[in-house]
């Protein structure tokens, strides 16, 4: 590798970086499309790609049309949306907390959202005003509360230490977990079943009604994150320095927390708590392409979507018996968490 000596060297370096970025995003987008098609093919009934196409456009056997259009398509779409949302949320949180261990499950945010949602499910809180969106709205409200709480507890005048961050996440998460148990205890049988099913994290109940419930908050959240991508870069490199360079850190913090809450709330509302996606995906991409959000956000969207679609398909059709995808991501995610702790000691603890 030759040293940069002049302006041409800089131009060359920029060109190379841009080429790398286009390739990374293009490659991941392509992977997403392929994963989407594969996930549409596999399930209890294996379809050929042509059957999938015909089915989506309503051509051919009525049964296949029904499966492709009304069962598989909304489910795969939801998985893609939730995968993208959780990854972007994880990314934003890691930057905001300046810590590669942060993610919605690790910091108890998902538990907070669960509590909000279970209140909506069992007591119908908010149903009068928000209708089908009451679960999302309640999830969002508690997501926001939890995240603000964890942030406030972990943040000191000297920054945020990993120990206090993880521990406050554990404490706040445990608290909301306790509240969820309480709700379960007093809920009637139907609501109980729904909550239990839902704390495991699954797309089994996704249909066309779920798609807008997930899409609206998630889209809003992702757009907000995209709009602050430069500021997130600067904040992730140090809040005080960001302020010195002209970033209004307080506003960015609020926008980031709201955006994350929207993403997690949309996810939790349709699929319950699915853990560790927000930890794994941003981490892997950051190792591959560096910490720039301009690049990481699109990669997390496509990569996270593809990852969760595939995980859901494996959980649904990969084994004798289908099980909730949340179980699978946790089984994968926990060892990954330990792997990061072990291998990236310096970044995590400093």
């Amino acid at each position: 590798m030759s040293e940069i000596k002049d302006y041409e060297g800089i131009q060359e370096f920029r060109k190379k970086a841009r080429r790398k970025a286009v390739m990374a995003v293009g490659g991941t987008a392509l992977f997403f499309v392929v994963a989407f098609l594969l996930c549409m093919c596999f399930g209890n009934y294996v379809m050929s790609p042509s059957e999938v196409f015909n089915g989506i456009f309503g051509i051919g056997d009525a049964g296949i049309v029904q499966i492709a259009r009304n069962v598989r398509l909304p489910r795969v779409l939801c998985a893609a949306l939730v995968g993208a949302a959780l990854s972007v949320a994880g990314l934003t949180m890691q930057s905001l907390f300046k810590n590669p261990m942060a993610s919605p499950t690790v910091l108890g945010i998902s538990h907070g959202a669960s509590f909000g949602a279970s209140m909506a499910i069992s007591f119908g809180i908010g149903a009068g005003v928000f209708g089908t969106y009451s679960t999302s709205v309640m999830a969002f409200v508690f997501c926001f509360i939890t995240m603000a709480l964890v942030y406030a507890i972990a943040r000191t005048r000297y920054g945020i230490s990993t120990v206090t961050l993880l521990l406050s996440g554990v404490a706040v998460g445990a608290f909301f977990n306790g509240l969820v148990s309480l709700v379960q205890y007093v809920a009637d049988d139907d609501a109980l079943q729904e909550i239990v099913f839902w704390t495991m994290g699954s797309f089994n109940k996704c249909n066309w009604d779920s798609v807008p419930v997930a899409l609206i908050p998630i889209l809003l959240g992702i757009v907000m994150t995209v709009l602050i991508n430069r500021e997130l870069n600067m904040v992730s490199a140090g809040e005080e320095q960001a302020a010195n360079m002209g970033v209004n850190v307080r506003n960015i913090r609020i926008i980031a927390i709201v955006a994350t809450s929207l993403c997690v709330a949309g996810s939790v509302a349709v699929s319950g708590t699915i853990g560790f996606v927000g930890l794994i995906i941003p981490h892997v991409f950051r190792m591959l392409v560096g910490p720039n959000h301009r690049l990481l956000i699109p990669l997390c969207i496509f990569g996270g979507a593809a990852f969760l679609m595939i995980m859901d398909t494996i959980a649904k059709a990969g084994f004798e018996m289908s099980f909730p995808v949340g179980v699978l991501t946790s089984l994968l995610g926990a060892p990954f968490f330990i792997y990061i702790l072990k291998t990236r000691k310096k970044e995590v603890w400093e």
Binding site: N233, M234, E240, Q241, M245, G290, P291
Partner: peptide, 24 residues
């Protein structure tokens, strides 16, 4: 303002780091 310490949790390239200064 050049502070005493620099965070390197997320290592940006030098070019990216300096470009951040253009923000204002």
């Amino acid at each position: 303002f050049v502070m005493q310490t620099t965070s390197t949790t997320f290592p940006f390239t030098v070019y990216e780091t300096v470009m951040m200064g253009r923000y204002s």
